[in-house]
C-alpha cells in the first residue's frame, strides 16, 4: 500500500504494544501488520476487514479475520476484550468516526489510531494556492472518487477525543520515529506531521 510507509509505521506501533498482548486490527488489510506484530511481539491477533479479497488473503495466512465493517460490527464485541485495538488509515473512511473511536476504546484497554493529517503544511498550502482538493502521497485519490468521507487535522482529532471522553496518552512523530508524550494541541503539531498516530484510552468515570 503506497499510503503508508509500512515498515516504519509497523515498528512504531510494535513499540507501543507489550509482548503477548491481545490485539484487534480494524481494517487489517492483508494482515501484514498483524503478522509483523506476531513476529515482533508474539501477540494474540484478530483482524476485521471489509474487503473480501483481503479477508481471503488473511485466511490463507492463518490470521483470524472477520469480514466486517468498523461502523457496524464493533458493537458485537464485549467490553475490554482486547488489550489493544488498532485503526490505521481507516478513521477518515468511516461513516461515524466518533462512534468508531468510542467503540475501539470500549472493546480494548488502549487504541492506536493513525490517519492522514489534512492540516499538514503541504496539504494546506496546496489547497491555498491551487484552490483544488489536494492530492499527495498520503491522500492519493481525487475528491470525487475518494473513499475518505471525513478528513480531519490533528487538531480536529484532538478535539474529537476530548468530546468523546478519550485520553490521548502518546503521539508518534513519524519523521523522527519517536514516541512522544502528548504535549497537547498546538499549531506546530498539526502543521508538521503528515500523519497523526496516537495512543488513546477511555477516560474512566
Amino acid at each position: 500500500m503506497s499510503l503508508i510507509n509500512e515498515k516504519k509505521d509497523f515498528k512504531i506501533i510494535a513499540d507501543l504494544i507489550p509482548a503477548k498482548s491481545s490485539v484487534i486490527d480494524v481494517g487489517c488489510n492483508d494482515g501484514s501488520l498483524l503478522e509483523f506484530l506476531k513476529e515482533e511481539k508474539d501477540i494474540n491477533g484478530r483482524g476485521m476487514e471489509i474487503d473480501q479479497q483481503k479477508v481471503q488473503l488473511c485466511l490463507s495466512k492463518g490470521i483470524s479475520v472477520i469480514e466486517g465493517d468498523a461502523d457496524l460490527d464493533l458493537y458485537d464485541y464485549p467490553d475490554n476484550l482486547f488489550d489493544y485495538s488498532i485503526l490505521t488509515y481507516t478513521l477518515q473512511a468511516t461513516k461515524s468516526p466518533k462512534n468508531v473511536l468510542s467503540e475501539l476504546v470500549r472493546i480494548s484497554s488502549k487504541a492506536i489510531i493513525s490517519f492522514p493529517n489534512f492540516g499538514h503544511w503541504k496539504i494546506a498550502t496546496s489547497l491555498l494556492i491551487n484552490r483544488k482538493m489536494p492530492i499527495s502521497e498520503k491522500l492519493s485519490y481525487s475528491w470525487h472518487e475518494t473513499p475518505n468521507l471525513h478528513f480531519c487535522t490533528i487538531n480536529d482529532f484532538i478535539d474529537l477525543c476530548e468530546e468523546a471522553g478519550i485520553r490521548i496518552e502518546k503521539q508518534a512523530n513519524l519523521k523522527t520515529n519517536r514516541l512522544n508524550k502528548f504535549y497537547g494541541k498546538n499549531l506546530l503539531n498539526s502543521y508538521f506531521n503528515e500523519v497523526g498516530l496516537f495512543l488513546v484510552s477511555k477516560i474512566k468515570n
Binding site: 491481545s22 484478530r46 473480501q52 479477508v55 481471503q56 488473511c58 485466511l59 490470521i63 483470524s64 479475520v65 472477520i66 469480514e67 466486517g68 458485537d76 464485541y77 464485549p78 476484550l81
Partner: peptide
C-alpha cells in the same frame, strides 16, 4: 453472525466470511 458474536465474546479464534 450470531455464532461469530458468541465466539468473539469468548475470545475464540474465529474467522467469518460472507460469500456474495
Amino acid at each position: 453472525k450470531k455464532i461469530v458474536k458468541v465466539f468473539n465474546t469468548l475470545g475464540i479464534n474465529v474467522s467469518f466470511i460472507e460469500i456474495e
